[in-house]
Nucleic acid binder design. Sequence first.
DNA 1: ATCCTGTGAG
DNA 2: CTCACTGGAT
Length: 323
Amino acid sequence: MNAFLHALSKKVYQSSSILVLHPQTRARFKRIVVALLDWHEENQRSFIWRDLRRSPYVVLVSEYMLQQTGAKQVEKRLPEFLKQFPSVKALAKATRPEVLRAWYGLGYNRRALNLHAAAKALATKKQFPKTVRELRALPGIGQYTASAILSFAYNEDTPVVDVNIERVLSRLWKKMPDVNAKLPMKAIDQLDAEILPKGRSSAWHEALMDHGSTICTKKAPKCDVCPVNKLCPSRGVGNRIIKNTSSSEKLYFGQPRRIWRGRILQTVSQRDIITAKALAQILISEYDIDDRSFSEFVTDILSVLEREGFVTHTKNGYSLAHG
DNA sequence: ATCCTGTGAG
DNA sequence: CTCACTGGAT
């Protein structure tokens, strides 16, 4: 494509400068950075992956686990996972059923398949990748995880924007009308790139995350104990009445589809092989289902699980798939 | 815009 | 009960 025409497209043009830091604002953020780094010295959360960190492999595994899974939950499960798979090589050598069983309970099981595939790809390389491009080429690694690995494993001066940081920086940038409001992703990325303290990327992003997780929480931010409340235009945002925008999940036989998916995968993983009919019967009796179409529902989910690489089936039934 | 998972806080 | 949690892929 013609590079000039491409540059003229609205998106590219806007992305070059969505947000302008006036000198006054820059000075305000300088103070914010100092205050949050100080706060972090005293109040940072202690997690095993932070202690064991600087090992790219540990960062990699922890970041996969931390995608949409709470840090406290990860803290419980990471040690046993690392014990079972202590290195890229060990994880690459493991079978898919082994990895899936080790992952059980953490949720978003596709992450386990992705992590396993990523380990296999990494095992063929001489050294651990150190660029966003290489990292993003691995399955299950997007913009966030790639930059998080670079910042946390290598202390690289790259912006890292997760939901916590998105929320905290939005509130610090200007007065947000309600607790749900956020700046566009591009703007946050640019803001973080401009204010992040060089050489302290890891501590800075940990500070933002810990602050967002313990003080600048989404629903009820604790502005009274916030170390940067005097520098924050959104101070007190939590006191406003918020309308509920989120819609509830659709239920199938009393539960969201994803819950049945989890139960089905778990049931398959607990035996070597099982027929679709037997599987449905187990769930019907265990959860007191009263609907003839449930078996169809189970079959449907099984075929999706097969398509996605979790299970395989022969004429004798379903079992966990080997890579 | 939706789907994927399970746990815990409030 | 509702919602948040260090997202990614489609």
